[in-house]
């Protein structure tokens, strides 16, 4: 009898890293994903690499081989670009907050209360998206402008009330951003709230939970992934907003996108424009990662 425990282990040759990589590359999953991966590299990673590379070239050069410098970043930190960053992030944060407060009740109605009216209400909310953002904002401009504007002119004609100017203030920009980005907050919240099981709400009510307790301990936690995605989407879009500040704000409030546009056009300073873009991406990315850590996509998609 041979003691099995003491039998010599069969010689199995362990594959090297190269072989493992080759086998991974030949796996059906990777092969099938290759076209998408190439498209992703060309369409998404490539431009980002170019922007990153330009941000380290000397100011006002148009040549990626012109040299390496960190001057553009030093310039941003020593000049007053922080003003644009503060305004952009503050306006984006306020837009998210306001849209959550406005969007949650509407989303609740759409997913729980409106019944057969939900579809028409949804349509009313979606239809403006078919019209260009600039056209919609110009509509607001005409509505709010002093003198012959629809609101000011109407109030003056009907009641003799002079509203004065309603444009060119940060509050007007915020109003425009709330209006433009509301659907981007709203629809993910609708998705989140539609995942709240009615049985669970009824069970908590039967067990004596108040309306506020149901909201805080049942609905909100279950709908949270949808709320976070809506907030995230809105925040990222709003940080890059430019039209609202240009048209409704009369460019009295500086925003990051405007600084970037200035550098790429009139200033002919691609490297500085690239550096501002990279910083904006990094700061936004950092905030997004913070939120994503709280987000469970599997749960949102109902996989567990």
């Amino acid at each position: 009898m041979v003691d099995r425990a003491e039998a010599p282990a069969p010689l199995i040759r362990q594959p090297g890293i190269g072989a493992l990589l080759l086998s991974w590359l030949r796996s059906p999953g990777v092969l099938n994903a290759t076209p998408v991966l190439i498209f992703f590299l060309i369409g998404f990673v490539g431009p980002l690499v170019i922007v990153l590379a330009f941000s380290f070239t000397p100011e006002r050069t148009f040549d990626l081989g012109a040299g390496f410098t960190t001057e553009n970043y030093e310039h941003i930190f020593t000049e007053s670009y922080y003003i644009s960053f503060i305004w952009s992030f503050a306006l984006a944060g306020l837009t998210v907050l306001c849209n959550l407060m406005i969007g949650y009740p509407i989303a609740y109605g759409l997913s729980k209360l409106f019944g057969r009216w939900a579809a028409p209400v949804m349509l009313v909310l979606v239809i403006p998206l078919f019209v260009s953002e600039n056209v919609r904002l110009f509509g607001w401009y005409l509505f709010l402008i002093k003198g012959g504007g629809i609101l000011a002119g109407g109030l003056k004609t009907a009641f003799g009330i002079d509203t004065g100017t309603l444009l060119y203030e940060p509050g007007t920009i915020l109003m425009g951003m709330i209006y433009v980005y509301l659907p981007f907050t709203l629809f993910p919240i609708v998705l989140g709230l539609s995942m709240v099981p009615r049985d669970q709400v009824e069970a908590s009510r039967d067990l004596g939970a108040s309306r506020f307790q149901i909201f805080r301990e049942v609905e909100l936690p279950i709908a949270m992934p949808g709320i976070l995605i809506g907030a995230l989407l809105t925040f990222v879009l709003a940080v890059g907003a430019i039209s609202e500040a240009k048209l409704l704000g009369g460019q009295n409030t500086p925003v990051i996108a405007q600084d970037i546009q200035h550098e790429f056009t009139y200033a002919q300073n691609w490297p500085l424009g690239s550096a501002i873009s990279v910083l904006a991406i990094v700061v936004t990315g950092f905030l997004v990662v913070l939120v994503m850590r709280r987000l469970d996509l599997d749960r949102l998609l109902g996989r567990r």
């Binding site: 590299l41 060309i42 990673v45 490539g46 431009p47 980002l48 690499v49 990626l64 081989g65 040299g67």
Partner: peptide
């Protein structure tokens, strides 16, 4: 510079070529 240009050309080919 040649290396940087190489990187740039590669990136351009990836990002802007299409």
């Amino acid at each position: 510079r040649q290396v940087l240009q190489g990187i740039g050309a590669g990136a351009l080919a990836l990002g802007a070529g299409g």
